[in-house]
């Protein structure tokens, strides 16, 4: 029954769109567009969860989808925008790696994770597609954190990785047991809050949130 659900057109479309949104984040140079793209990605994730929930009939997936929608698509982007407005940070993102090279690297990462999951070759055709999407989401998230200088972008990178994992969880095992799922959401929310506090504190002490300046502790 999973195979039918998974290779239905909607799922493939949704996963492809999620991948597209990550590339949107990779390619944008302005903070606001990144946050918006993250919002879209979370929304798409909620739809994936809803579709899987609908097809497997597990009620808690509905709850999970609803939660993703509220927390990840609405609350977290709001927090981001609040931080950006509050710190009056320059809108551009300084990068170590230019836009076009980071896009190429993003593409390479997707191919590697696809080849990687294929070589493990353990799951059915489509869910392996979903798993490789989640793997690439995780690696692109990590790449964003490595290549972007702004502290906020590093926060965003973590959230993208977390989205990737969520996608992986759903595609592999239709979501973890509800209790664990709730715990993860709760943790992610607190993590974002604390990182927000930290960013305010960095801004207060370093007068900038460019992590390049954070190099005093050496050796």
């Amino acid at each position: 029954m999973e195979e039918i659900v998974f290779n239905s057109g909607i799922m493939q479309l949704l996963i492809a769109l999620i991948l597209a949104s990550t590339f949107l984040i990779l390619g944008s140079t302005r903070l606001y567009s990144c946050v918006k793209a993250f919002g879209i990605q979370s929304f798409l994730l909620a739809c994936v969860a809803w579709v899987v929930g609908f097809s497997t009939g597990k009620i808690d997936l509905y709850i999970v989808a609803f939660l993703t929608l509220i927390i990840k698509a609405a609350v977290i982007p709001y927090i981001f925008i609040y931080i950006i407005r509050e710190i009056k940070v320059k809108r551009e993102i300084e990068l170590y790696v230019g836009i076009s090279p980071s896009l190429i690297i993003g593409g390479v990462l997707v191919v590697i994770s696809y080849y990687l999951i294929r070589s493990i070759a353990v799951i059915t055709e489509l869910s392996s597609f979903a798993l490789s999407a989640s793997m690439s989401l995780v690696s692109i998230g990590l790449f964003i954190m490595i290549s972007r200088k702004k502290a906020i972008m590093q926060m965003l990178g973590i959230l993208i990785m977390e989205n990737g994992l969520f996608l992986g969880a759903i595609s592999l095992t239709h979501g973890m047991p509800l209790l664990v799922e709730l715990g993860i959401f709760f943790d992610v929310l607190i993590a974002v809050l604390i990182m927000g506090i930290l960013i305010f504190r960095i801004n207060k002490t370093f007068e900038t949130i460019d992590t390049d300046k954070l190099k005093t502790l050496i050796g």
Binding site: S139, L142, I146, K149, T211, L214, K215, T216, L217, I218
Partner: peptide
């Protein structure tokens, strides 16, 4: 131990 967080993340990667 260069001090730059990006290097540290690169190590993990």
């Amino acid at each position: 131990q260069t001090g730059s967080i990006h290097a540290y993340l690169a190590y993990i990667f």
